[in-house]
Simulated assay, not measured.
Amino acid sequence: MPSPPSSPPPLSRLRPLLLPLAGIGAIAGTVALAFAWSAGYLGPRALSAPQLINAIEHGSPPHPGFRRSHSKGTCVVGSFHASGAASPLSSARVFSQQDVSVIGRLSYPGTDPHAPDAKARFRSIALLLRTDDGQQWRTAMNSTPFFAVSTPEGFKEQVQASTPDPATGKPDPARMAAFMAAHPQAKALQEWAKSAPWSNSWANTSYYSVNAFIGTAADGSRHPLRWTLRPHAAVEPLDAEQSEQADADFLAEDFSTRLAAGPVRWDLVLIEAAPGDPIDDPSHAWPDDRRQVVAGVLELTSATPQATGECRDINFDPLILPDGLAASNDPILAARSAVYSQSFNRREREIARGHAAEATGEESHP
């Protein structure tokens, strides 16, 4: 990690960055549960999973019974149809079975389950694929192709820098300046956010694994992989007029309308690293000319509210992998399981104790 300069950039240079950095704050919410060691500790500084969740929760009103991030979402069901083309990269059964059952969740960034959908540009999807031999593949993907930081400690600093000051309702410029000085790779994500399309639907959004994994083929060869979901629906940007007029829940409403006309589909594309590509650093994207294989088509056929849907009580831990796929040494990927578990346990306890009903008047929540 680069050492910070002796003094942070002047605040006058920082002001033009605040709006995009608010987006990075939203990204922090988008990836908020992407860190934790299996033992509950993160990295050499012994950052614990509860400490990181506490940082995420700090400064936000409590929403008992909901996920600690991506709190607002919709359950979906469908299937994955393998093309067979991915077999040279991984022997996982999911890449050879013709019809694989899928339970998923489409979500919105942040900690507020009642936030208006037009206020954040980022989207996420989580999937559980179950093959006919009983194996599961769980993957959590974001609409950002890389992260702003490469370590759990860096993420905690990002969350803290992005937390609004109660006096202004905005992040503290000095704290954000210090974060940017210590983590220059965040600038790359900021630049991406300025030019990337702000989609008007979950259905026409591309999603990225961000982290790398290791595929093992039947011949024993090993292949560093990332994957992306590429929508069949044409990308349509959310313009300013739509943003102002959109209903608070327009993403779920739009998706239901699309499903009424037929399944919503994406190509699942595996991307193989070339020698020298960063395998264990999710803050760097791989070049566009890397080998790409269309592993199959994800087809979603129905959606239900998250309070009653099949996804409600699923922990979409991306380290639950089938034979033929394994985790890389990415510290952020290795960190995910414990915080996912901690978050799941917190909300389930809240529901069991009736705190969710007391806070919201609803019986149960995802």
Rank of each mutant, 00 (worst) to 15 (best):
A295N: 06
A240I: 13
H284A: 14
V235H: 07
E236M: 07
R291N: 12
W227F: 15
G276R: 00
V269L: 10
A274T: 08
V297R: 02
G262P: 07
D267E: 12
A246V: 10
P287S: 09
P263G: 02
T228H: 07
W227C: 14
W286V: 03
A234H: 05
V293H: 06
G276N: 02
H284G: 03
P282I: 06
H232Q: 10
D281L: 05
A285L: 08
V264C: 08
S256A: 14
A261Q: 10
W227I: 11
P282Q: 03
Q292E: 12
P237W: 00
H232N: 03
A248I: 02
E241S: 10
D254E: 13
D249K: 08
G276T: 04
V235N: 07
D267H: 14
S283N: 03
R258K: 13
A240K: 15
V293D: 06
A252P: 05
V297S: 07
V269Q: 12
V293Y: 03
A240H: 12
T257I: 02
A248M: 03
L270I: 11
R290F: 04
R290T: 09
L270G: 15
V294R: 09
D289G: 02
V269H: 11
P231W: 00
V235C: 10
P282S: 05
D247S: 13
T228W: 01
L268N: 03
I279S: 13
F255N: 06
L268H: 06
P278G: 10
D280G: 11
L238K: 02
E236G: 01
W286L: 05
D249H: 11
D249N: 14
V297K: 01
P282C: 05
P263F: 00
L259N: 03
A261S: 12
L298H: 07
A233I: 04
P231C: 04
H284C: 11
E236W: 00
Q242N: 04
D249G: 06
G262D: 04
S243P: 12
T257R: 13
P287Q: 05
